[in-house]
Structure formats: C-alpha cells, structure tokens
Design a protein around this nucleic acid. Sequence first.
DNA 1: GCCAACGTTGGC
DNA 2: GCCAACGTTGGC
Length: 140
Amino acid sequence: MAVSHWLVKSEPDAFSWQQQVENKVEPWTGVRNAQAAKFLRTMAVGDLAFFYHSNIGKEIVGVVEVARAAYPDPTDESGRWVCVDMRAVSPVPQPVTLATIKATPELAEIGLIRQSRLSVMPIAPEHWKLLCKMGGWRKP
DNA sequence: GCCAACGTTGGC
DNA sequence: GCCAACGTTGGC
C-alpha cells in the first residue's frame, strides 16, 4: 500500500520539533477531537507527516514518520482516545510558513487553511510534493 | 487581547 | 432533536 501523507500540529510551548528530534520516537498524545482521532486511526507505520508549529512560528519545520499505529492514549483516563508514535525523520531546510501557504493558490484547499483548528489532517500527494519542494525537503 | 470557527453541553 | 450558551483552538 502506498504511503499516506499527513500534517500534525503542535504548539512549540507544549512540544516542539526540537524535543521531537531529541526524543527520536515520541507518543503523539492528547488528541481529543473526533475527526483528528479518525485520522490517527487511519495512519499506518511508515506514513510521513509534516510537523507544524502552531501559535509560535506557524510553519512546517520538520518531517516525522509513524513508528507505531494507533493504540490507546495513555494520557486519556477514559480509554476512548488513541495516539500513535512518531519518529523524527529530518528537518525541513527552509520552513514553510502559514503566510507562504496562504499565498500559494495551489494550496488554498488544504486542511490547514480550510479547517484551521484541526490538529491532524491528511495531505494530498500533489500538495505533499509541492510543500516538499517549497521547503527544500527530500527523503533522506 | 481580540475574534472567528467550531465542538460540546445542557435545557427544553 | 433543536439550539443557545459556553469553552477551546489558533490566527492576527
């Protein structure tokens, strides 16, 4: 099966790309939104995701890959929510800012803009390709 | 600090 | 089941 592509958001105050790199593999916990959780459940090991800094920076700063598929979120006492494990792949050499994305007509339809509050979202292959090009990111 | 978007809760 | 009130997220 083909690799799927995603974008995940994190507030760098809470959990930054720097921490992701230092920890290498990190559980992606705390998603408490049904739509975002549905996407987490859809992720497969090996899928790639952009790591986006919300609030501070507002830019795509790195790429992570799914290291473990959805399992119960240990930070959720109710047991209803899931998380995945993410592994740092490599930084995006030239971070792609929200302003740049907004200024790019081809990217007008991506979830980041259409649904600004969603923290986990799929990225279409053509958008992934374009964003990689804009950020100067190549698969290592 | 404000506000828009949108999800959740609770009264009816 | 509807909808107003309220809370949260995230951009500006």
